[in-house]
């Protein structure tokens, strides 16, 4: 990565997680500038979600430390630092059993939504803006449970965006979306980085789908095997280290990150993982 001129939004130093004999993450070093869009790819069980959980303070690393906006993430600074960060966890079933209107779900992304009862939280324009951005304005007063999986995902995205965080962490945000909606989502995220200087870390399976939008891709399997900037080629050895030898390579556009000139990259559906999982 280029040398930092301003304080980086995220900085991970020698981060490790898990027992020393069986590390889930090992010696992760990462730095993210404001406005940078980072994609993280890797096989199942590579520790991608764990890494996101550590960055947003859900679990504590066993080694190393995390700086957000140039300040160490600790018990004391946690509340202040994390109020400028939002995390969109992987989609889960069974949490949608509560009667809630879409507008209220989105409002839950604001700190002011958790005050005492007498405190009214208007912020209507912020909520409207988030609904508009994610294209779900029409469902503002619909019951959240009545929406389809893809629509629910967009509501959750709106909730993560509503406070205009400086850091956004996304764990497979496109899992419930069809291809056009996926492209729209990535485009929106790109726009947020460019216009609002938001820093985004996104975990995604399909490197081909995101490579047009992200600034860089980190290949993660226990440790970061490679960190490629846009247009850079990821050496074939990295793929072998990450996925083992039984991987199926399919052709991609030459312009995408990670593909060499004759075009190769992993096809995640048909990859057989080695002993690294």
């Amino acid at each position: 990565m280029t040398a930092a001129i301003t304080t980086p939004a995220i900085r991970l130093n020698h981060l490790s997680f898990g027992r020393p004999q069986a590390r889930i993450l090992e010696n992760i070093n990462l730095q993210l500038e404001a406005g940078h869009f980072l994609g993280i790819v890797g096989p199942n069980g590579a520790g991608k979600s764990t890494l996101l959980h550590i960055i947003c303070g859900l679990i504590e690393p066993d080694d190393g430390h995390i700086d957000l906006f140039g300040e160490c993430l600790s018990r004391g600074s946690r509340k202040r630092l994390l109020s400028q960060l939002r995390f969109l966890p992987q989609r889960q079933e069974g949490m949608s059993g509560m009667p809630l209107r879409v507008r209220h779900v989105v409002a839950m992304g604001l700190d002011s939504a958790y005050g005492p009862l007498w405190q009214r939280a208007p912020h209507r324009n912020l909520i409207d803006q988030a609904l508009e951005r994610t294209g779900i304005m029409a469902y503002a007063d619909t019951d959240f449970r009545a929406l389809s999986g893809g629509q629910q995902q967009r509501v959750r995205l709106a909730r993560a965006l509503v406070a205009m965080p400086r850091i956004l962490l996304l764990d497979e945000p496109a899992a419930a979306l069809d291809a056009p909606a996926q492209a729209k989502l990535y485009k929106l995220l790109r726009q947020l980085c460019d216009e609002l200087d938001m820093s985004i870390v996104m975990v995604e399976h399909d490197i081909a789908a995101i490579s047009d939008y992200v600034d860089s891709v980190a290949c993660l399997n226990r440790s970061i095997h490679h960190h490629a900037l846009r247009g850079e080629t990821i050496p074939e050895q990295v793929w072998h280290d990450m996925y083992g030898n039984h991987m199926h390579i399919v052709a991609h556009d030459a312009a995408c990150i990670g593909c060499s000139s004759h075009g190769d990259g992993p096809h995640n559906n048909e990859t057989h993982y080695g002993q690294n999982t």
Partner: peptide, 11 residues
Amino acid sequence: FDAVSMRAMGL
């Protein structure tokens, strides 16, 4: 509704 996201907000 979603405790994980709330914890990630620092609450």
